[in-house]
Design a protein around this nucleic acid. Structure first.
Lengths: 217, 217
DNA sequence: GCTCCGGCAACTGTCAACAGTTTACCGAAA
DNA sequence: TTTCGGTAAACTGTTGACAGTTGCCGGAGC
């Protein structure tokens, strides 16, 4: 049985602020006041302060004696984020190909086939980011069995990525291509070829980078 | 001119705790009490609490309602840390080969030559970790011009690495080999060959990993 | 002798208040 | 009209106190 864990006001505040930033309620560059946020959430400044500290370097930047601001997310930051993704997800794919149990890989493949069918029949060309694409990458991060990499991807990279995704539309046709690349990654995972799996993932991230940067400009 | 920045009690407490953990004053697995630490530092619990939160996932692990413990660092954690290093430092080397200015690379090379001479004449075989090896890797992280990667390496990876280094001696002969590998990396940086620079760095990290794991057991 | 339960001490999570600094506004002088 | 200076409000950094929970220790019961 799973223990009920860690529901503190600070965690609650953390989740609420993340949601507010990702959803766009807090705009990039906007200053967040501890006191104001505490009043709005109906709690004291202590937990709010803690939540904002946990977001430092992830979704907000902090200047001593001034306060915290929602990070701005231009092409420069986006490019750096994709470099980080390429390195981490590439390694995650390599480790997954090497160590992930067979049933994990098979489940991932069936999940991908289901998404594929769903996209084909609904005719939507955007490969719903929230569920499909992100789940795929999260699953591989989990399959890497490397807590460090998993933590950074889930708690830092994907948060920042969602800020960008909310604010930019995807190039038509990218969805189909992304799906193909996902299948290529799966193929290399099944083949238990670590080097090829890593390279497939890195190529996929690079393609996504170029597509995103093109969308931005 | 650089502004005098961020001397808060929390930052001070953060540095002190990091030093205490890295130096071995706080042993792995040991519980750290907020109140006790605050008393010892002569400050209130607020800044201490903030400092411990910033260390979460880096040098301490935290359990709700229980407290924080210094992370334990076995072969499993060490292996994962080196996977992360391989991914991040490999990418950092790639970016450095691609974008770092020429004088930066040249300065790095002269620094390496100086270290080399120093080691040769002093006859010490351990390549003083604190200054030489770490500086080299930090410099490449800086040369990557990628704030994300730089931040993770400096604030997370190298901290954890120092915990391990303090507690294990280095295999004899590893120092010379490491120095050779460093020169190989520099050579690829000068040649402006991103792929080769990345691979050289990754090979270097892999070699360090095997050496460290051998030392541990 | 071993197990289980109750009370106590210590600790974490949270709150409200204080002190020093930054920011914004407003009026006066050039 | 613009710029400079001063004052006041707001905010961050810090502190001490309070409440609920956890873990430990000793004693009672089997």
């Amino acid at each position: 049985m799973d223990k009920i864990v860690g529901t503190s006001l600070a965690s609650e505040a953390f989740d609420r602020v993340v949601e507010a930033i990702i959803s766009g309620e807090f705009e990039p560059g906007q200053k967040i006041s501890e006191a104001d946020l505490a009043r709005r959430l109906g709690i004291s400044r202590g937990p709010v302060r803690e939540a904002l500290h946990r977001l430092e370097g992830r979704l907000v930047s902090r200047v001593p004696r001034i306060g915290v601001r929602v990070i701005k997310f231009g092409s420069h930051e986006l490019r750096q984020l994709f470099y980080l993704r390429e390195a981490l997800e590439g390694m995650a794919a390599r480790l997954a190909a090497e160590f992930a149990p067979d049933d994990f890989v098979e489940e991932l493949e069936s999940l991908l086939h289901r998404d594929s069918a769903e996209i084909a029949q609904s005719g939507q060309s955007v490969y719903r980011q929230r569920s499909a694409d992100e789940d795929f990458h999260s699953a591989i991060a989990g399959a890497s069995n490397c807590e460090n990499i998993q933590r950074i991807l889930l708690n830092e990279v994907y948060y920042q990525l969602r800020i960008h995704r909310l604010r930019s539309s995807q190039k038509p046709g990218r969805a189909d291509q992304a799906l193909k690349e996902h299948f290529e990654i799966i193929a290399q995972l099944k083949a238990r070829n670590p080097a090829a799996a890593e390279e497939a993932m890195r190529a996929h991230v690079r393609a996504a980078r170029e597509s995103s940067l093109a969308d931005l400009s």
